[in-house]
Amino acid sequence: MERAKLDLWVGMFVVAGFAALAILAFKVGNLDSLSMSDTYVLKANFGNIGGLKASASVKSAGVVVGRVTDIKLNPESYEAQVTIKVDKHYQFPKDSLIGIMTSGLLGDQYLSLKPGVDDDMLKNGDVIKQARSAIVLEDLIGQVVASKAESAK
């Protein structure tokens, strides 16, 4: 095999390999706007996070605007401290509301960010005050059973 032809083939092979990786990163994966552009960090405390996981998405009006980067238990308040990063393009008022939602009945849990009305915007490192915990299915069922029992009396 001629050297030039061989080099050409191997060159194309490597280029195709990088193209495949790029497709995996941008088309299949989520390395599009979010991981590339600048982000800022916000925190929120929840009484119960249910099944929320790191790298779960943060949505506002259904649009992905950020991602959960870290989940810790605050050893003093025994609350879950969730850290998220949000795309710089999206700014939210200080009194925005954050809640843990489930996509579908059995789907993944994600954070939903509902914008408030304040003129001041949340800045890097701020804590979102208004946080609604996850709805735990067992608690819900427990409540329903209890209220039924009440009414049956």
């Binding site: 088309k27 991981s35 998405s57």
Partner: peptide, 19 residues
């Protein structure tokens, strides 16, 4: 099809680990 895929496949966690 594509949006669910993109929402769940994390670059670092899935793609990089696969590589």
């Amino acid at each position: 099809f594509w949006s669910q895929m993109q929402a769940s496949v994390d670059f670092q966690h899935d793609v990089v680990n696969g590589v």
